[in-house]
Design a protein around this nucleic acid. Structure first.
Lengths: 141, 141
DNA sequence: ATAATTGCAAAGTCTTTGCAGTTTG
DNA sequence: CAAACTGCAAAGACTTTGCAATTAT
């Protein structure tokens, strides 16, 4: 029923095993659907309940979930990657001044993608990197 | 007259000093206008003539030139940054399969930028990260 | 002179990996 | 039981930094 259980079922289907850390990672990512959590932030939350887990395990689980198409990672800037559910389509713009993340509609690149496809035969992926600029308050300040 | 000399003049204007490594870095970047050189590749070329230079110096010079608006760095993917003259406007798409870099017109994002500005008051910078996808040959293969 | 710059080695950040022991199915 | 998974410590990739010595102006 739960999104978490659905995900864990998919993990098992793929031959993976369900461990407590894996369950915790899935739970954290699922309950922060709109957040842009880094591996470190995810690990921090996981370790609150499972103090013997390790961030390297979190990285491995995140990769597994990404291979299964459940999770995606996005680069908001020069720092660490951030992770979110793949089902959650949206694009991002990050203010270089204050760091705020603006969520953008998922059709944002449709015209650009069509143009690149027509002109170059290049088929664009869902962008993997955020746009950068200045948010309203910082732009006028 | 030379673009290299123009750049070095600007460096001096800004209070910087012209050293042999700096001249070499500027020369390498200027003579590879369309390439997407990493710091390591730039250092490699510099070291051919100045074997006692060091890549950390190249990084420092690249930063200085970037602060002066002469050079920009772009991330083509998950690897190292690539550097090119700022005067050389263009955007990039990288094939995730074969790695080829497609250069895209500099007005590519104009509509997207206008839309984000109108809807969110967010003023987009020149993108700093390449788009990713599949080039014509890899998309059809 | 004197402030900028350098080479070097060390540290920093984020992520991956080898391995020996543990756990899941 | 066998394969998957784990914690840990170490390594890896890329970049930055502290410092004492050197160099440009």
């Amino acid at each position: 029923m739960d999104r978490v259980d659905d995900v864990l079922a998919r993990v098992r289907e793929a031959g993976g095993r369900v461990t407590s850390t894996k369950r915790a990672v899935v739970t954290v990512v699922s309950s922060n659907a709109d957040a842009h959590l880094t591996a470190e932030q995810i690990a921090e939350q996981v370790l609150r309940n499972l103090p013997d887990s390790h961030i390297s395990t979190v990285y491995r689980i995140l990769h597994e979930l990404e291979d299964l198409g459940i999770v995606r990672h996005v680069h908001l800037g020069h720092g660490p990657s951030t992770y979110h559910l793949a089902a959650d389509h949206h694009h991002h713009a990050v203010c270089e001044s204050c760091g705020v993340v603006v969520e953008l509609p998922s059709d944002l690149y449709d015209d650009v993608a069509a143009r690149i496809s027509a002109d170059h035969g290049f088929e664009l992926d869902v962008p993997h990197f955020a746009l950068a600029g200045r948010c309203r308050s910082c732009a006028t300040a």
